[in-house]
Each structure stands twice: as structure tokens, then as C-alpha cells.
């Protein structure tokens, strides 16, 4: 291999640059931060099990969107055979009615996720 010294040095620098956010957080003590989304509701159970909602709520909402807008189907039957109206503002927000920044944005900000649901879907207490 030609110029192996230069290549290796370059790789090391590249590696440092790429991992720099990790170092930065470790040094400033931010790595221990855990987002705590607040749930304000008297209901015990979301429409699907917690684990499922945690990992798949994005797919679920996208599915609802396709279903309502493109197929005209508005009722969702959960895995426990209960029926729900597919609506972000009228179903999800009934329970998760606290401010967006206390619930949605807790994790979204942590993960660097942006979405523009609220550009269109209006919600009285939120944005």
C-alpha cells in the first residue's frame, strides 16, 4: 500500500471527528441524560402495548394517515379487539393532552427527530 502512514493518520483523524459528539457528551457529563416523557391521564393502557407503541408509533401513525386519507377507513381495531377512531388530535391527544414539549418532544429532541404534524393538524393546547 502506498503512503500507508498518511492514510493511517487520516483514518485516525477521521475517526476522532466522527466520534467527537460522543466524546463531547461524555466530557460534559450529558451522556447520562434520559428523556422523561410525562403522561397525564387516568387511563392505564394505550391503544396497544407500551413496548409496541414505543418502537412503532411512527409506523402506526403513518398507517393511520394512509388509511384515513387514501382509503377512507377511519376505525382502528387494536390487538385487544377494541375499536378506536384513527385520529391524531381526537384519539392520541385525548390522553397525551399535556403540552407537546412535555411528551412528544422529550424523546424527539433527544433523538434529533423533527416532524411537521403540527404544521397542519391544529391542537388547542399545543402549537
Amino acid at each position: 500500500m502506498y503512503d500507508s502512514g498518511k492514510v493511517m493518520a487520516g483514518l485516525v483523524i477521521f475517526g476522532c471527528l466522527v466520534t467527537s459528539p460522543i466524546w463531547y457528551n461524555a466530557l460534559t457529563g450529558k451522556s447520562g441524560y434520559i428523556p422523561k416523557p410525562k403522561i397525564v391521564t387516568d387511563k392505564k393502557q394505550c391503544i396497544e402495548p407500551k413496548e409496541y407503541i414505543r418502537t412503532r408509533h411512527k409506523d402506526l401513525l403513518k398507517d393511520w394517515r394512509e388509511s384515513v386519507v387514501r382509503k377512507g377507513i377511519r376505525t382502528y381495531t387494536g390487538s385487544d379487539k377494541k375499536r378506536y377512531t384513527m385520529s391524531l388530535t381526537r384519539t392520541c391527544m385525548n390522553c397525551h393532552s399535556n403540552k407537546l414539549d412535555e411528551f412528544c418532544l422529550q424523546c424527539h429532541n433527544y433523538m434529533g427527530v423533527t416532524n411537521n404534524c403540527w404544521d397542519c393538524h391544529a391542537y388547542p393546547k399545543g402549537t
Partner: peptide, 15 residues
């Protein structure tokens, strides 16, 4: 590996 989501069912009022 991602299982299929439950299929939405039509409402009685779906036209």
C-alpha cells in the same frame, strides 16, 4: 422482520 400492523376495519358508516 417487521410484522404487519393490524388491518384497519371499515366502519359501519363507511360509504
Amino acid at each position: 422482520s417487521r410484522a404487519k400492523l393490524p388491518e384497519p376495519s371499515p366502519t359501519p358508516k363507511t360509504l
